[in-house]
């Protein structure tokens, strides 16, 4: 098997593992009842999506986009800029979600979704 084929194979495999991470995050969000666990799933989902952006920006043989006379090939800077914004917005989302969870805990005495729905039905 030559290098070209191996490169294609592992490149595709990297995409598949990224998608596995995304899908697992989605599963945790939908399936788990505990709200902190749901937020963990959201973090995994968000963080894995970064890879879908950064991955295609990579150029083989390229280097980080800090200009220097010794380098001529650079990776693509645009996905990096987008994802820098996404990371910071992601932590803002997480903080807001956690504040809501703390309030829910105070109002309902639990952060399990099933128990909260039950209380709402009884009320």
């Amino acid at each position: 098997m030559n290098t070209e084929t191996l490169l294609t194979f592992f490149g595709a495999l990297n995409h598949w593992i990224t998608i596995f991470l995304i899908v697992t995050g989605l599963y945790i969000i939908v399936a788990r009842s505990n709200m902190i666990k749901k937020l963990t799933g959201l973090v995994i989902f968000q963080t894995s999506v970064y890879l879908l952006y950064i991955g295609p920006g990579k150029v083989l043989g390229g280097t980080a986009v800090i200009l220097n006379d010794r380098f001529t090939v650079y990776s693509n800077p645009l996905p990096h800029v987008l994802i820098l914004t996404a990371i910071v917005v992601g932590v803002a989302t997480l903080a807001l979600g956690l504040a809501l969870v703390v309030r829910i805990k105070e109002a309902y005495g639990t952060i399990e979704e099933d128990a909260i729905f039950e209380q709402d039905r009884d009320a």
Partner: peptide, 30 residues
């Protein structure tokens, strides 16, 4: 993947601040 800026932000914000926020929330909700 040639994104040192993003990596540093992820280490500081994702591994640092997010963990602190989650731990602070866990203290209050169990």
């Amino acid at each position: 993947l040639d994104a040192p800026d993003v990596g540093m932000t992820e280490a500081a914000v994702g591994a640092g601040i997010s963990t602190v926020l989650l731990l602070a929330a866990l203290k209050r909700v169990g």
